[in-house]
């Protein structure tokens, strides 16, 4: 016993080394679980405040291009709405339907605007920190979209900040479909270029061409249907040869991400609860 104690005293730094390493590895692997606390993430109070201050300054730098993008998109959408409402008017001969539909769209979803305060691009698992948290009503599993398309899903929240799991994370998996033909697959990213992601598990018999738009499918209740994701850039066979693997050029430019929206759908909890109850059995 005394020998053991002497040994431990003499090599106490070995002991400390092992303890510290084990502690860090536990932290590293615990972070994968959803229940992990937000304390060891950039959503904690001090780092959140610091990042917010810096982003307050740096958000001015890209305003010019951001503004131009928004105006262009606005014009495009306005023209589209105009054309669609014209068509609808001819079809139904009734103008009250349109205003009714507009109200319905916003009834099912709540939208919170938020600003990106921290962002990373070229690790295998990237995360985004935004300046809205549980006290603003933002909860894990809500969808996050940018001006041009899908950004990711809320992962951890503290009271004033939230960490978002963006498309550019190997753990992210978003259900999406080809806009024209409605065949769906899963959007994944496995490192590399931040402008491209992959749609997996697209069935062999599906029809699509290069250049088709990919949008969210609305199956998962995280995102509403039809939020733009990207354009099919290239296609190949999956490793097992049973499905197609589509290379998608993402609409969202993650390197210039600044203002985003968090969407929460009203039926999300109910649908998730129902699906969980099935998978337990």
């Amino acid at each position: 016993m005394r020998n053991l104690l002497n040994f431990l005293l003499k090599y106490n730094y070995w002991l400390l080394f092992i303890i510290l390493e084990v502690f860090s590895l536990v932290l590293l692997f615990r972070f994968n679980s959803y229940q992990g606390s937000a304390f060891f993430t950039s959503a904690n109070y001090v780092s959140g405040i610091l990042y917010e201050g810096v982003s307050e300054i740096t958000s001015y730098f890209g305003l010019h291009t951001l503004n131009r993008d928004l105006v262009q998109r606005n014009v495009k959408l306005e023209l589209e709405v105009e054309r669609l409402s014209q068509a609808l008017k001819e079809y139904t001969k009734d103008t009250t339907v349109i205003s009714q539909m507009r109200r319905d769209v916003l009834q099912d979803y709540k939208v919170f605007s938020a600003r990106v305060v921290n962002n990373s691009l070229n690790r295998t698992d990237n995360y985004i920190t935004i300046n809205r948290g549980s006290s603003d009503g933002v909860l894990p599993e809500m969808g996050v979209i940018g001006g041009n398309g899908v950004v990711g899903i809320v992962y951890h929240t503290s009271s004033h900040f939230a960490v978002v799991l963006p498309v550019l994370n190997s753990k992210s998996s978003i259900s999406c479909k080809i806009h024209r033909t409605d065949y769906f697959g899963l959007l994944r990213w496995d490192g590399g270029d931040s402008q491209y992601a992959w749609v997996k598990d697209v069935p062999r018999h599906s029809e699509f061409t290069l250049g088709d738009t990919v949008v969210t499918s609305g199956h998962s209740s995280v995102f509403p249907e039809g939020i733009p994701v990207g354009v099919v850039d290239d296609m190949s066979d999956s490793h097992d040869g049973l499905s197609y693997l589509l290379k998608v050029r993402l609409f969202t430019d993650f390197a210039r991400l600044n203002d985003v929206c968090v969407i929460s759908s009203k039926g999300q909890k109910e649908q998730a609860g129902l699906e969980d109850s099935i998978s337990i059995k």
């Binding site: 536990v26 932290l27 060891f40």
Partner: peptide, 16 residues
């Protein structure tokens, strides 16, 4: 790590 959302990653490398 806390700032870059990689809990344990830099800590273990630093300890080594």
């Amino acid at each position: 790590d806390i700032f870059s959302n990689t809990p344990g990653m830099n800590a273990s490398a630093c300890t080594l």
